[in-house]
């Protein structure tokens, strides 16, 4: 297979784009930054399945497509299954010798939002990983059902305001914890699982390449800042993502074969989560005096989680 050189950005920028403009994602949407980076990381043929969500809906507005690769428009729940089915058929036809160009390198990829991944397509994803398909599944985690108006998902963090977990006089927004999807996928024994962020472009490109190269099912959770539902100015998508990774709200790490955990990014100056929260409208209510305890609770969770990740890395088990 041929990977694009990612030694530096200049070399990476020689990749010929296969994801076209004039899709209808919001200005500043991180989904397309992540998709572009995945597609630019290789020049292999790609077969991509997208679960219903902002990415799918906005890149296939009839009669237009933004994809220069094979791309399957599938249901909300079954991107994993569609990609797995294509991969299984490809393998079978290769065995039977009925492929036109059996030596052309092909990679199978599925994209799903957090709603599609953490909730609605959860068992389908679990099945794909358990059956061992050679598919890279990428979750575009914007922590809500953005395409249908910002409902809470099991990826929405504590304290966030969403249209179905509203902050007001009696509530401070979502009360339940964010599901640890990375740990769950690693527990399947998948060969490569990671959490990555587009602001750290090189770490993300490396992770994508590793997943594409690894035989078997790989899962990557990517942080996808959503200007509309997180409520920030579209120009700040990368700035917000910097705050997310540097406050350790989104630690960047990988887990190999369900065991060895490697931290891929250690911020030089860890910033308080408060700075990350303050930059987004969805957390505005937390800055009222009566909600101060929620910020403290979030900070405590973040500290404990970072401690846990470091210990696991050290232990190497």
């Amino acid at each position: 297979m041929a990977l694009t050189s990612i030694k530096n950005l200049k070399e990476f920028s020689t990749a010929n784009e296969r994801f076209e403009g004039a899709h209808l994602l919001c200005p500043g949407c991180a989904h397309s930054m992540i998709v572009r980076e995945l597609m630019n990381a290789t020049d292999d043929n790609l077969v991509i399945a997208s679960a219903t969500g902002c990415l799918e809906v906005c890149t296939a507005v009839y009669p237009y497509t933004s994809w220069d690769t094979s791309w399957i428009h599938i249901g909300f729940e079954n991107a994993a299954t569609a990609a797995a089915g294509a991969e299984a058929m490809y393998k079978a036809r290769k065995r039977k010798g009925t492929l036109k160009d059996p030596d052309a390198p092909v990679k199978f990829v599925a994209f799903g939002g957090d709603g599609a991944t953490y909730d609605i397509g959860f068992q389908w994803l679990s099945g794909m990983i358990e059956r061992g398909h050679d598919v890279t599944y990428i979750c575009l985690d914007n922590e809500n059902y953005a395409n249908t108006g910002g409902q809470r998902s099991s990826a929405t963090p504590v304290g966030a305001h969403t249209s179905t977990a509203q902050a007001g006089r009696v509530s401070y927004g979502k009360k339940q914890k964010k599901k640890d999807i990375v740990a769950i996928m690693a527990a399947h024994g998948a060969p490569y699982v990671a959490q990555l962020a587009p602001n750290k472009w090189k770490i993300m490109a490396k992770g994508f390449q590793k997943a594409l190269e690894t035989e078997g099912p790989c899962f990557i959770n990517t942080v996808s800042a959503c200007t509309t539902e997180w409520k920030f100015n579209p120009k700040d998508t990368i700035n917000i993502t910097d705050l997310a990774t540097d406050s350790l709200m989104f630690p960047i790490y990988e887990i190999i074969d369900g065991r060895q955990l490697n931290i891929l990014y250690r911020p030089k100056n860890v910033i308080p989560v408060e700075e990350y929260l303050a930059a987004q409208g969805r957390y505005k209510h937390l800055f009222k005096p009566e909600n101060r305890h929620v910020i403290d609770m979030i900070q405590k969770e973040v500290n404990e989680r970072w401690e846990y990740l470091q210990r696991r890395e050290e232990a190497g088990v």
Binding site: L9, F12, S13, T14, G21, M33, W201
Partner: peptide, 16 residues
Amino acid sequence: DCQNCWVWCPDTSIIS
């Protein structure tokens, strides 16, 4: 020519 704008443009609109 650092290509920062290229890598992060969400709309494939930086021509490099």
